[in-house]
């Protein structure tokens, strides 16, 4: 089992490397010249542009640039451009010349907001979704079942940003049912104001992505209730509760966990909307802002962090698999 997890981790690192190459290539061969971003439009002479290009190292061969980037991640890399000098310790994801900051430090400060948002949202989605799914599977064919399946389809069909936007407009701005959203640190401002600021975003993420979990857990519950070993459990004389929760649910969880890994990527994409609409200073909003200002080092770093997020989530999923299923654990 240990070897299994190590193998997954190694392949995760390979995925991250491939992502970094792709991101790097995109910028190097991309349509916009990053140096232009630092060249004030009115006073941008060709000489000045060439200067900036050189100081950013953009004139050097692509491999060398990539090597420098990788070296920065491992060993740190101090940046100097003209009079400005920005120290960048390992892991260095580059510096933003726009903001004159170390990208890693800058993003690290915004990371807790995104993490709080994601973990809380997933927790609500999984609990709510699987609970609804199991309930629907137990009352299959009744009105309640049809209601759950139907409403989950409707919610799924509405674009996520619309749900988030409407929720914000009505539930916070218009009616004031929920407290003003935003992120504060639970350590400095206290857990209550932390949770209050994230409450509506959590619910929006949780409810919208719970629909997937509900449909999948309903389907896999129905399937596993028809398994031979569930019949065996009933034949033993176990109570319906035990049969459902101990025998059927344990195996029905496996496909739900798979969805969790996949949903995580979708959730990150959604974070951009969530953070923008609810005004939360997290990675997603930072990425969006950086795209506006063509701040390439930040964009690159956010992509890498998102990839790391997804890779980690999948390793967690694999670990959960092996905990659930002895056939994975003992192979």
């Amino acid at each position: 089992m240990f070897g299994y997890i190590i193998r997954r981790a190694v392949s995760g690192i390979l995925v991250l490397l491939a992502t970094s190459v792709a991101v790097f290539a995109l910028f190097f061969y991309g349509p916009s010249n990053p140096a232009l971003a630092y060249c004030p439009e009115t006073r941008c002479t060709p000489e000045r542009l060439a200067n900036i290009t050189e100081s950013l190292g953009l004139d050097r061969p692509v491999l060398e640039q990539y090597g420098g980037y990788m070296k920065g991640i491992v060993a740190g890399n101090d940046f100097e451009a003209g009079a400005i000098s920005i120290p960048c310790d390992a892991p260095c994801l580059g510096v933003s010349f726009k903001l004159r900051v170390d990208v890693a430090d800058y993003l690290l400060a915004r990371f807790p907001a995104t993490l709080s948002l994601a973990v809380g949202g997933v927790a609500i989605a999984v609990t709510l979704g699987t609970a609804l799914g199991i309930f629907a599977s137990r009352v299959r064919g009744t009105l309640a079942d049809k209601l759950i399946v139907g409403s989950s389809l409707v919610i799924n069909a509405v674009p996520y940003y619309l749900v988030a936007l409407l929720a914000f407009l009505y539930l916070i701005s218009e009616w004031g049912i929920f407290p003003q959203s935003g992120y504060v640190s639970p350590f400095t401002a206290g857990p209550i104001s932390w949770a209050a600021g994230l409450l509506l975003p959590w619910l929006v993420i949780g409810i919208t992505s719970s629909t997937q979990y509900a449909r999948f857990s309903r389907g896999s519950m129905i399937e596993s209730m028809n398994e031979d070993y569930v019949r065996t459990a009933r034949a033993k004389g176990l109570s319906d509760r035990m049969v459902t929760l101990k025998h059927a649910l344990r195996s029905a969880v496996v496909p739900v966990v798979t969805i969790m890994g996949l949903e995580f990527a979708a959730l990150l994409a959604g974070t951009i909307f969530t953070e923008r609409i609810f005004d939360i200073q997290g990675i997603g909003k930072t990425a969006l802002d950086a795209i506006g200002t063509k701040d390439l080092p930040i964009i690159a770093a956010t992509v890498l962090i998102a990839a790391a997020f997804v890779v980690t989530a999948n390793i967690v999923v694999d670990i959960i698999y092996s905990l659930l299923d002895p056939r994975v654990r003992l192979s």
């Binding site: 031979d228 019949r231 065996t232 009933r234 033993k236 004389g237 344990r250 195996s251 002895p326």
Partner: peptide, 19 residues
Amino acid sequence: RGGEVAMIFQDPLSSLHPF
């Protein structure tokens, strides 16, 4: 069920819970 009256099934692999 499982007390006074018990049952065994055709396919022992699928009739036992794999987990």
